[in-house]
């Protein structure tokens, strides 16, 4: 049987990441098995699908292991302060609405110290894509519990088990007004690429909550044998696709996080509204 031409091509030519990686920056700082690298690759493939000029892409991050991402990618890149990436990004986007602005942030960065910026960015519906690398821990500072650490999990600051209930990042983004909300995992890497691509194509604030593994801290402290074990237990078995959820018996869904595009609506985008305000009100008034 003959293989269809396009499929064959896809199989024989692996993705050329060097097109988007800055030369000489690898190996990256992430630990063996850290999910951040897998997510980075999915992000680059998704950006590639956009077919957009690298000069017009801006990648902004806060502080954390995940926030080291911009250093490796060949775009306009900004590594800011802990929690503040979305605010810096808002400034850039407002000043240059023609640029594609992508924020890479950790769950601690986005939801703890940056929680206020997170909800207000969603509320404004400014055209920024936020990729939240959710490893349920503060990786960079050595494994303290984060706003997404599950109850009873062990962290270096919850040695007796975490008693703080975690956020559902997607529910929060949706409630705050984000017009595109999705979840993916590092394990489902092709699906993640597609989800990020859809997020990038969406006009308005898009949030992708990406479950990935920190084997060094979360894994070790919570008795996972390896990065693979974490990916299987947390990402593969811990999530179900929105496309399948209705077909599955309740016991197969209980306690699992939903994967896929969870929310997508149309609502006026901030920069477009600003441009309208300038044209129709402010400048009209001054005439």
């Amino acid at each position: 049987m003959s293989v269809p031409a396009e499929k064959k091509e896809k199989i024989s030519v692996p993705f050329d990441y060097n097109k988007y990686l800055r030369p000489g920056k690898l190996p990256h700082i992430w630990c063996p098995g850290c999910g951040h690298g897998i997510v980075l690759k999915a992000m680059l493939r998704a950006i590639d699908k956009l077919g957009i000029d690298k000069d017009n892409v801006c990648v902004v991050s806060g502080i954390g292991c995940s926030s080291r991402t911009p250093g490796y990618v060949d775009f306009n890149t900004l590594h800011t302060l802990h929690g503040r990436a979305l605010s810096f990004a808002t400034g850039i986007k407002l000043a240059r609405p023609d640029m594609k602005v992508i924020v890479v942030t950790g769950d601690g960065d986005a939801l703890a110290i940056g929680g206020n910026h997170f909800i207000h960015t969603c509320r404004r519906n400014i055209d920024i894509t936020a990729l939240v690398f959710t490893n349920a821990i503060y990786g960079m500072t050595g494994g303290q519990y984060s706003p997404t650490t599950p109850l009873e999990s062990i962290a270096t600051t919850s040695r007796y088990g975490n008693i703080e209930p975690p956020f559902d990042t997607c529910e929060m983004a949706k409630a705050a007004g984000a017009t595109f909300v999705a979840r993916g995992t590092a394990y489902h890497t092709l699906e993640l690429e597609k989800t990020i691509y859809e997020a990038l194509m969406h006009k308005g604030t898009s949030v992708v909550d990406i479950i990935d593994a920190c084997p060094t801290y979360f894994g070790r402290m919570n008795k996972y044998k390896s990065a693979t074990h974490m990916m299987e237990a947390m990402e593969k078995d811990g999530t179900v696709s929105v496309k399948q959820v209705d077909k599955l018996p309740p016991e197969k869904v209980a306690g699992k996080m939903l994967r896929g595009v969870l929310h997508k609506i149309d609502r006026p985008e901030y920069c477009e509204q600003y441009a309208l305000l300038v044209q129709e009100k402010a400048q009209a008034k001054s005439k």
Partner: peptide, 22 residues
């Protein structure tokens, strides 16, 4: 461009972003 941010940290951070964008 004018924007009222959610707090002063957001205010200066966005202003730095605006400046970086020229």
């Amino acid at each position: 461009k004018f924007i009222q941010m959610e707090d002063e940290i957001g205010g200066i951070a966005a202003a730095i972003g605006g400046s970086l964008a020229g």
